[in-house]
Design a protein around this nucleic acid. Structure first.
Length: 325
DNA sequence: AAGACGAAAGTGGTTGA
DNA sequence: TCAACAACTTTCGTCTT
């Protein structure tokens, strides 16, 4: 049994600890009994590194997936075959029609021809208008890809961001605003929609736009495009922190378990998901002996050390930990 | 010397009259 | 619309390893 506090709780205190014990057992290979098991998230398997035996093939894919957030998309994405892509703009070639009423030899056109050219010019003007918005779209979509890559976002988030941007264009929300500012907000909304934990600050920084501006555009989106934005799940933050700090799968697993128990005991309500994730990750790192400093975790989770301390104190007061390795 | 701790004051967002 | 409020941050001095 491992207690987090350096001072062991007294008998009297132990009686008051009404938290449930957490038991974490590391799986061992059913073939060779080796404990050297790795998760292969791409194939959704747990594989024994010793003998190659597939221990379990029911590993949940925590990665992002296709998502539809309005009816139109639901219909569009109910499909067979390769996915549609919204990130690539249709590169149109444009043509100009001369304004002089003369042909290539400089001869005057007949009145009938004049009328024909008039009609052609009229339509050309109309096409050009849509060309301009298409051009805007092309620039914006390229921008989305660029900042998306900076933030190492999965492709589906970029797709979502592109859809959101197109929608914003349709609703005339971009007039008078910086394209980069709007794309940044679109990316942020897409992250939220897809449950990818990225802070407003990270997105703002990657796109070289002030946090204030991105926030403003973000709120504009919420108001005018009526998206319901779900709060990011704590478990997503746990995954993020773990991968950012190169923690072993075991640490992340324990972190998830601690969170699960804490949730049952209602220790997490009203608390920011990022701070809870940071605290559970901190505890898990200590329990497994792969200790990370509060500062490291604070940085990865984008919360302060003080907040981690506050959260983890609350957790430690109510939980005690049993680790079987 | 680095990490952890915690008090106190400040900040931005939500809620409810 | 404004004030109250909780969560969180910033800052900083102190203790611990």
């Amino acid at each position: 049994m491992i207690f987090l506090s350096s001072k062991k709780p007294s008998e009297g205190l132990l009686k008051h600890l009404n938290g449930k014990p957490i038991t974490v057992e590391t799986q061992s290979c059913t073939e060779c009994q080796s404990k050297n098991i790795m998760e292969d998230k791409e194939r959704g398997e747990k594989v024994c590194l010793n003998c190659g035996f597939v221990v379990s093939d029911k590993l949940a894919d925590r990665g992002p997936e296709w998502r539809a957030f309005d009816h139109e998309q639901k219909e569009k994405r109910k499909r067979v075959g390769s996915p549609l892509t919204y990130t690539v703009h249709d590169k149109g070639l444009s043509t100009n029609i001369g304004w002089r009423d003369k042909d290539i030899y400089g001869k005057k056109l007949s009145s009938e021809q004049k009328a024909q050219f008039y009609r052609m010019r009229k339509w050309q003007r109309r096409i050009r208008v849509s060309d301009a918005t298409e051009r805007n779209l092309a620039v914006a979509l390229a921008g989305i890809s660029k900042t998306g890559n900076k933030l190492t976002l999965p492709k589906n988030v970029l797709e979502t961001a592109s859809v959101i941007y197109r929608k914003a264009v349709k609703e005339r929300l971009i007039r008078g605003r910086l394209i980069e500012g709007v794309t940044a907000a679109a990316i942020y909304v897409a992250c939220r929609q897809c449950g990818i934990p990225r802070t407003l600050e990270e997105v703002a920084e990657a796109s070289n736009i002030s946090k204030k501006e991105v926030g403003r555009n973000y709120r504009l989106f919420l108001k005018n495009l009526d998206y319901s934005i779900p709060p990011i799940k704590t478990s997503k933050y746990i995954t993020k922190i773990s991968s950012q700090l190169d923690m072993q799968g075991k640490v992340e697993e324990i972190s998830h378990k601690i969170f699960g128990t804490a949730k049952e005991l209602k220790l997490t309500s009203g608390r920011g998901p990022a701070s809870v994730a940071a605290a559970t990750s901190y505890i898990a790192s200590i329990l497994t002996g792969e200790k990370k400093t509060q500062r490291e975790i604070a940085e990865a989770a984008d919360v302060t050390e003080v907040t981690i301390r506050n959260r983890y104190k609350e957790l430690v007061e109510r939980l005690y930990f049993v680790v079987k390795i």
